[in-house]
Design a protein around this nucleic acid. Sequence first.
DNA 1: CCAGCCTTGCT
DNA 2: GCAAGGCTG
Length: 489
Amino acid sequence: MREGRVPSRVATPEPPLPERSPIIVWFRRDLRLSDHAALHAAARTGRPVIAVAIRDPLVDALGAAPKWRLGEGLRVFGDALRAAGSRLILRTGDALDVLQRLAEETGARDVWWMRAYDPDSVARDKIVKAGLEARGVTAMSCAGHVLFEPWTVETGTGGFYKVYTPFWKAVRGRGVVAPLPAPSRLPAPDAWPGSERLEDWRMGRAMDRGADIVARWANVGERAAQDRLEAFLDDGIDGYHQTRDLPGVVGTSNLSENLALGEISVAQCWHAGQRARHEGRAGAETFLKELVWRDFAYHLTWHTPHLLTRNWRTEWDAFGWREEADTDEVRAWKQGRTGIAFVDAGQREMYVTGRMHNRARMIVASYLTKHLMTHWRIGQKWFEDHLIDWDPANNALGWQWAAGSGPDATPYFRVFNPVTQLDRFDRDRAYVDRWIAEGQANPPPEALSYFEAVPRRWGLDPDDAYPDPVVEPGEGRARALAAYENRAF
DNA sequence: CCAGCCTTGCT
DNA sequence: GCAAGGCTG
């Protein structure tokens, strides 16, 4: 005790000195150790790092499949932090309350995270930042969920891009900061704050229904994502520009679920793609363009958040979409029983695995919004509940693209013919036969797994006859085009 | 203002 | 060849 200092009667713990106070890193859709700007910066200070994930109302609001997938991601990420000598602290509640309490418990004066761009997250993060700073806790968000910050890409007249190709041309030559390494060490705090158990988070068992198939495709976590990227670079990328359209073969990177949860960073993918491009690999450019589509979805979401909830071109509000989610036709679409093979194969693949090939996504979306004249929002919601790679911006942009109501969308009158598409992209029926058991003497396990997965109340049996089309392609096309001709705008 | 252009298609 | 019309420079 120094002279002149008045000893307090009640012994209160000294707050840690600022240079020793821990830094809280709040993990959301960025479940990785490498190329994580916030974690990297925190580790570089040499101060203790406390990683936290919060089950807040936005997590509770997730669809069943993405919630399950997030649970898997958190489990693997927690293991990875353990292996690095650290921990993932789990807490439930409103993010601000949780972070405020955790900061008080641990003496932390800094909370850092990776920036989000969807309107719900932006609104929440704004409240969190203001609330923390009002209590003297510094909040810092770092870039890295997208390649290019949405406000840094402008047209010649200072607006934002609404068409993909000019956007691509504007960014393709830009530099992207080289990925950061994983921290070499993550100093632990003097005492670990308490954590909830992931098992108690009830992230659901949505994908148990496809357990065998899902397990075979297991791709959870940073290590798995890096392995998959490497495998894709080894032999997938050369033919990517051609094979990516063929749902019957493994021709895509399959990284969407990892990108959705940030188990790999888009910058890591970008630099890998650039290296492949410099090596003259044929599909590299197409791969880079797909990464930029993901950015474009966030770019548009940032500038026009209503992309996620209503027709981006609001005049489409006057279009006669059917809004009922419970008609026989919509039920057939959801249950993969439209009688249109390409549509049903896609829907069944998604129901069992939580994934759907991009080509199939376009076809099921076109069939719902055009042949069935149903509002894209109903399809968007179904995807939100069933896709393990669900991403708010990309799902919305995809649906509005298919429906014709979105920016740079396919024109409404451009109606996909699901039979022609089959001939073009699944000529040997590898895809549809994989997912449709009816009529096959020896259906493959995937096709049978669908009948195991669906709820009993759907009343499906693999020995049933394959249904007749709920709407014939020709009839649906004519109906859609007539509705378009008679539109009120 | 205009000219050129616009992921994925169909008959 | 058709199907509109908006976007960008």
